[in-house]
Nucleic acid binder design. Structure first.
Length: 506
RNA sequence: GCCCCUAUCGUCCAGCCUGGUCUAGGACAUCGGCCUUUCAAGCCGAAAACACGGGUUCAAAUCCCGUUGGGGGUACCA
């Protein structure tokens, strides 16, 4: 086992919490946990223009939801805080000054207009784009003068253009890029905020991060960071660039082509265990080829040798299957409680029930005392055996079980009620006989109902599927439903008979 | 364009480091069958891949080179 690894996940609060953040967090978590190190959450909120106020709490909430608990972070504290970059501006300012003093960086007074113009010109003559270094050679007195009259400026990194800068990527091996390919990166913007490159390096060092885990898209900027570490005289951390999650067309995963918000997965009834498991499967393989494993099982035999480098396509279909597996693996009690908690969460986040989908369920819960009510839990619990193998997400429960919660199931037509090659009148005759028979039942249980209906099959000469279709539609309102006899027991004799009467009125 | 990363079934992973055991294994999805009151679940089965070209070697999915494809980067975004 290696030294204790200190890792960090460093999302920007610029929108919904991203599935890529969870992906990085998972591997940071595994790396630090299995080496006895620490895992840090740092909020990189240096881009004031894209900042969104509620984003940070959504990130922390989502990470906790997934069980990817960090040891240090803005909401849990830690020895090397603050963990929000916007609260560390003074630290960056000092470090920039150090770079300026040691001439590893320089002030650049170029306006954005000039830079745009410069790029146009470069493109026009097919030259590689990049800062042309105009301010790199500014005389000290010129700089002083401009500073004195408050000309806005940025601070740029003085990149050595005469040598190769390299680093060892833990996943990919040696990576080298020549200095002339590297732009004189802006380290501090004219608004006084640092850019990612500066803040990231300074914070990683100050927070004692010794293994930088991040997405592949950062590989080409890593040499800039190497230069910074060298300029400060700091030891290099290890770098591990994870593959990028991809859309179906293999481009970097984006919200236009995939649900990327962790909030979306929660709202749509995915289980955190399933999401984490699925993310782990992206670029990682279990020890024995096992596909279903918990966080704990993953940690138990975690091995960086089984991490791969090529960008996996994010396949919602497979996530759905895994989610179904987890739903089926749950105990019926746990699943019932999960559902209730899910609907309570949905309600608390302003979910508007759809009458055609889940309106009946929410109405019924409200009428019966709400999410906390025992009678609600009891009935939900009673439906578990009927639905557990039939839903892949928590959200699929409501549309599947409308017949239990709806007052009036009418809305189907004869084309549903009447089996192929049978007539409406004949079907009604059958239903009438069925009604009489059911009404005479002494006990109303799954088996007594089944016995009665099966006897009818023999008596009337209808095929089982024909007779059960008519009964199913009459009682549940749909040709597709949970198992008929169990459903009838739950719905109860009074309602069942009433619904048969309604079918007879068709 | 330039730089960097990458390449096994449609998709996710094994196998590659340490060449032979690979007529390439598992999973999702697909298709077929069984079970069956619908739909699922479950069980059984089928189809489906080593990007291409050169080397090295008795032997290459595995090692080397090149090509091609895919991705990323090339901002006072992260």
């Amino acid at each position: 086992m290696s030294e204790p690894l200190v890792t960090r996940v460093a999302p920007s609060p610029t929108g919904d919490p991203h599935v890529g953040t969870a992906y990085m967090a998972l591997f940071c978590f595994a790396l630090s946990r299995t080496t006895g190190g620490r895992f840090i959450l740092r909020i990189e909120d240096t881009d004031r223009t894209r900042y969104q106020a509620d984003s940070e709490s959504q990130i922390t909430e989502s990470l906790h939801w997934l069980g990817l608990d960090y040891d240090e972070g803005p909401d849990v504290g830690g020895p090397n805080g603050p963990y929000r970059q916007s609260e560390r501006t003074e630290i960056y300012r000092e470090h920039v000054q150090r770079l300026l003093d040691s001439e590893k960086a320089y002030r650049c007074f170029c306006t954005s207009e000039r830079l745009t113009e410069m790029r146009h010109a470069q493109r026009a003559r097919k030259a590689p784009p990049g800062y042309d270094g105009l301010c790199r050679g500014l005389l000290p007195e010129d700089i002083e003068a401009k500073v004195a009259d408050a000309t806005p400026y940025v601070v740029r990194l003085k990149v050595p253009k005469d040598r190769t800068i390299g680093f060892i990527d833990e996943l990919r091996g040696k990576v080298e890029i020549h200095g002339k390919e590297i732009d004189d990166q802006v380290l501090m913007k004219s608004d006084g905020f640092p850019t990612y490159h500066l803040a990231n390096v300074v914070d990683d060092h100050l927070m004692e991060v010794n293994e930088v885990v991040r997405a592949e898209e950062w590989i080409t900027s890593t040499p800039k960071h190497v230069i910074l570490y060298e300029a400060f005289g700091w030891d290099l951390p290890r770098f591990r660039h994870m593959p990028l999650l991809r859309n179906k067309d293999r481009s970097k995963i984006s919200k236009r082509k995939n649900p990327t918000s962790l909030l979306w997965y929660k709202a749509n009834g995915y289980l955190p265990e399933a999401l984490v498991n699925f993310l782990a499967l992206m670029g990682y393989s279990g020890a024995d080829g096992e596909e279903m494993f918990s966080r704990e099982q993953m940690l138990a035999d975690f091995d960086t040798k089984r991490m791969s480098t090529s960008g996996p396509v994010f396949d919602l279909e497979k996530l759905g299957w895994l989610n179904g597996e987890y739903i089926r693996a749950d105990s019926e009690d746990d699943l019932a409680r999960r559902l209730l908690a899910h609907w309570a969460y949905r309600t608390s986040t302003g979910h508007e029930p759809d009458p055609a989908v889940d309106g009946a369920l929410y109405d019924w819960i409200t009428r019966n005392g709400g999410f906390e009510s025992d009678s609600v839990e009891t009935l939900i619990r009673a439906t578990m055996p009927l639905v557990q193998t039939r839903i892949k997400t928590l959200e699929e429960y409501a549309p599947l079980t409308r017949c239990f919660f709806l007052d009036d199931i009418r809305g189907y037509g004869p084309e549903d009620l009447v089996p192929k090659k049978r007539e409406l009148d004949a079907t009604k005759d059958v239903l009438r006989i069925m009604r009489t028979k059911l009404a005479g039942l002494e006990h109303w249980t799954t088996s007594s109902v089944e016995e009665a209906l099966r006897a009818l099959v023999d008596e009337l000469g209808w095929k089982p599927r024909e007779l059960f279709q008519a009964a199913r539609v009459a009682i549940t309102g749909s040709k597709v439903s949970p198992p008929l006899f169990e459903s009838m027991e739950l719905i109860g004799p009074a309602t069942c008979l009433e619904r048969i009467d309604q079918a007879l009125d068709l």
